[in-house]
Simulated assay, not measured.
Amino acid sequence: MTLDPILLIGGAGIVGRQAARFLREMYPELPLLIGGRDLARAQQAAAGIGNAEGVAVDLTAQDLDLGERPVSAIAIFFTDTTTAALQFAQRRGVPYLSVSPAMTEVGPEIAAHMHRPNASAVVLGTEWLVGATTIPALEFAKTFHRIDTLRIGALLDEQDEGGPASYDDLERQTQALPAVQVRRNGAWVWRSGDALETSFRAADGTMLQATGLSPHDVFGLATVTGASNVEFNLAIGVSSSRRRGEPMSTEIIIELEGEDQAAQPLRSRHAVIHPEGQMPLTGLGIALLLERLIGLDGKPAVRAGLYFPYQLLDPAVYFERFAWTGGKISALKP
């Protein structure tokens, strides 16, 4: 099957290079376009990937300055305040994936989809590490008959390099937004001020100071599980591996409380860990989504619609590739 190239806008950045690396390892012949404002930087990144071309992308131009150049899908690695890339994807009828806008910022993307719902598949990909939280959480939830509380604690090591776009996203979502949403006793409420401050236990049991965040995971997991209490908290500091004298890692702590199939109280606590930090998991999720969106896996391409990542990713495939990249999941004492 001959495919048009996938366009990675911002593909010369850290996340973009990770996604391109996984796509290249999975599909050596897949053509890629590495797009960015700096043509020389995009070309340099493309040269290091192989079977890729660096192109200049102008988000103020209706055709992104690409003319009639064909593409099979678009992924963008920073917040596009113009929605130019999404509108370009809709005009071409190709899938579109964004991984930066917070839930409070997706109004323009949702409006664009609502006005052209049959144009293309649109993925709101701002889940924490693009599937690394939601897919394991939904797998752990299968042992429960009822889930009352679902808590996510993400630990980002202070040595974990995320690149300028990732830093801007994190700063905007943790500092510029004065409040975040959580589900409490079945109702959606806002946390702000002192209510944002909290703590959770890392994989090694260390208590960490954390602050509330509301990536898309919160809304998706609450909807799927029906849990009355759902929250997401982020800590930035020293990871459990580094406290042991090992290199830094990234951790996601997933805690569930409710009842088992026999209506008995049940609690579970798991750690999702990657020894190379946040970027490999983010890149993996993006690569797997692009694979699924355009049918590289041999299945039909995804139909036009609005999706979260976990709605498209096969858990079995995800866990296989997760382990392939070096990721680990550990059951912890509740």
Rank of each mutant, 00 (worst) to 15 (best):
A176T: 12
I273F: 00
I34K: 11
I76V: 15
V15R: 11
P300V: 09
G67N: 00
L281G: 00
T282P: 04
T174C: 08
L177F: 14
P315I: 03
A56H: 09
A263V: 06
I110V: 15
L170Y: 08
R242L: 10
R321F: 00
L281R: 13
R244Q: 15
A202D: 07
L32V: 09
T133E: 01
S214F: 02
V182M: 12
N51F: 03
V180H: 14
N233C: 03
A165L: 05
A165Q: 10
A304M: 04
V238E: 06
T133W: 07
F22P: 00
D217R: 04
A141I: 07
I34N: 05
T211K: 13
L3N: 11
A19K: 09
L156F: 11
I6K: 03
A137W: 06
G237I: 05
P265D: 13
S241V: 04
G295P: 05
I253T: 05
D4Y: 00
D148Q: 13
E246L: 15
E231L: 01
F78K: 07
G48N: 03
G13K: 01
S214E: 01
E251S: 01
L33N: 02
A154P: 01
Y318K: 09
I254R: 04
G93F: 10
N233A: 13
A176D: 13
G193M: 12
G237L: 10
L66C: 02
L64F: 06
G50I: 02
R243F: 01
L23R: 08
A331N: 11
L213V: 11
H145A: 15
L289G: 06
A46Y: 03
R151S: 15
P265Y: 02
R184I: 05
V94Y: 01
E291N: 12
L208E: 15
W190P: 01
V302Q: 13
A61D: 11
A12Y: 08
